[in-house]
Design a protein around this nucleic acid. Structure first.
Lengths: 325, 325
DNA sequence: GTGAAAGCGCTAACAT
DNA sequence: ATGTTAGCGCTTTCAC
């Protein structure tokens, strides 16, 4: 692989000049610059980013560590981050922590070691530790879930309120035994959604289950609820992946969404309008979350002294047929 | 940020010893090693991966460049790659080329500049150029779509045959005017699926449309086909994202899948069984594609002289109700 | 405007 | 077993 000195030799100049010419820095004699460009071309020269970054102590890549690549909510965030980063000349690499604290730690380490310019992170758990990053001066912004511990930028959704509104919507629709399926304890969105649900139906309810944010767990939990002596007549489900499991459970019991069991699900999945009846959902502004997060990150990379902010976006209830009898 | 010399100073040894101790290399006096570890701990030392990689001329990260993060087919591949890479101690970063040749080129460049150990790539188009990577010695394996030009490992699906079988399945079901919605010309899977369709229904058909691999384009194209004087009574759709658009089109026309218009879709999306009637699909072994690709990549990283291979996996038709009257 | 030279943080010969 | 030293490929003062 050709190096900068190969180019310098071929162009008959110093490596400094090559560097300047290639980076469009300061003033380089046009004729020399042309010679350099030609030499680089002929040699098939590609700058070594490692060396450059080592020297410059900075990289034009952002890391985005998300907790589930297979969840459309997170991929929409990814798109938002990417679209914004792109126009500022940053590349973004995605890391899938898979709701697994070990993997998350590994990727935080990779981000640290590769000295990325900044990281956007949806923290997996309570114990997510970004101190290493912070201490090194790598800005990090949390999305979807707050980072406990010292401050930093975050962009969240008022998910407790959204859950409360969704549960009330079900109650207004005439459902009387409303249940809830939420994610794992300790995951903030899951806790919040459950709290919001309780705000609406009363603290004393036992009509809820908590599982992983996955289809299979939700299917089992739904079945469990449905087998109760007094089963729920409506369900608030904490994400669209879980809803897949819930819908399977309903089908297995020959229960129809809406008429038999009212359903409201978080996240407006692409297939939400395809099922029968169409699914009432709490739509989260995932793409915007990503954009805002990227914006904050870039701002903080430019100026590390900005005061930490937390942005809270609103979710929006989209009423369709699954919450009507 | 603490460097290796800070640690060395604090532990009262040379940087070489620190390096050896931290990497578990050769024999280091246990007592010294302990001092080093302690010093590193106290300083909050994190090795600089850039410097290490620059020196070692290698990285333990793989790049996976996929053409659409929002497509479950590709995220399943991602999972396969990641699961396998993980056990060998490699991290994988995802890059979303978004079916866009410019973005793809950028990410190939990033991979090159960051000197990743290898790349798995689903080439966006005909003109995807991995020569730079190859020349530099970075192994690349292509998934889903072949790389034209010089050889390398690839893992593909026999998609033409799968399309042919799917179309025949529709014909066997009594549908007589079978149409096809495929992806953009030049994208190999799209070409192959169309060819397979033609193998089954005859070369002379004009009952097909090509659009982007996206929902909206497919919706329009489906409408276009449906508005024909002699519209199709069945449709083979080239991916699940497009099928969302097709299903919307059908609903808009008050046409029912199966009874009115038979549907077979590529990719077994999680929601395929949730709609009514359940969707007949061509299931591709996406996760396995990822695993095999990662395996090949790792093998090639270990031994660059292996002969190039191409692995072809089979897709599987899952008959459900959308292809029955 | 251009070159010489130092140095980013680390690892790997080579000495000892 | 440990230290000394060179150097990975690049950018950037500092002279000229």
């Amino acid at each position: 692989m050709a190096t900068i000195s190969d180019v310098a030799a071929r162009a008959g100049v110093s490596t400094a000049t090559v560097s300047r010419a290639l980076n469009g820095k300061s003033t380089v004699d046009p004729e020399l610059a042309a010679r350099v460009l030609l030499a680089a071309e002929e040699l098939g020269y590609h700058p070594n980013g490692l060396a450059r970054n080592l020297r410059r102590q900075e990289t034009a890549v952002l890391a985005l560590i998300i907790s589930d690549v297979e969840n459309p909510f997170f991929t929409a965030i990814a798109r938002g981050v990417e679209d914004l980063a792109q126009v500022s000349g940053y590349s973004v690499v995605l890391c899938n922590s898979d709701e697994n604290e070990d993997k998350e730690r590994r990727y935080i380490d990779v981000a640290l070691q590769e000295r990325v310019a900044g990281v956007v992170l949806s923290p997996t758990g309570r114990s997510t530790n970004v101190e290493h990053l912070r201490r090194q001066g790598t800005p990090v912004v949390a999305v979807d879930r707050p980072l406990n511990g010292p401050d930093g930028d975050q962009v969240l959704v008022d998910t407790r309120r959204a859950a409360r509104d969704a549960a009330r919507h079900l109650a207004d629709g005439g459902y009387r035994r409303i249940g809830c399926l939420s994610g794992p304890a300790g995951v903030r969105t899951a806790d919040d959604r459950l709290d919001g649900f309780r705000d609406a139906v009363g603290e004393d309810t036992t009509l809820f289950r908590r599982t992983e944010y996955r289809a299979e767990g939700a299917r089992l939990a739904a079945l469990d609820l449905l087998d109760l002596p007094e089963p729920p007549d409506a369900l608030l489900v904490a994400n669209s992946t879980m809803t897949i499991g819930v819908l399977q459970a309903l089908t297995g019991r020959h229960l129809r969404p809406g008429r038999d069991v009212g359903i409201v699900s978080f996240d407006d999945a692409p297939w939400a309008t395809l099922i029968d009846p169409p699914l009432t959902v709490v739509a989260q502004p995932a793409y915007d979350i990503g954009r805002v997060a990227a914006q904050l990150l870039l701002a903080r990379i430019a100026d590390g002294t900005r005061a930490p902010t937390t942005t809270t976006l609103e979710a929006r209830l989209i009423e369709r047929q699954s919450s009507r009898r």
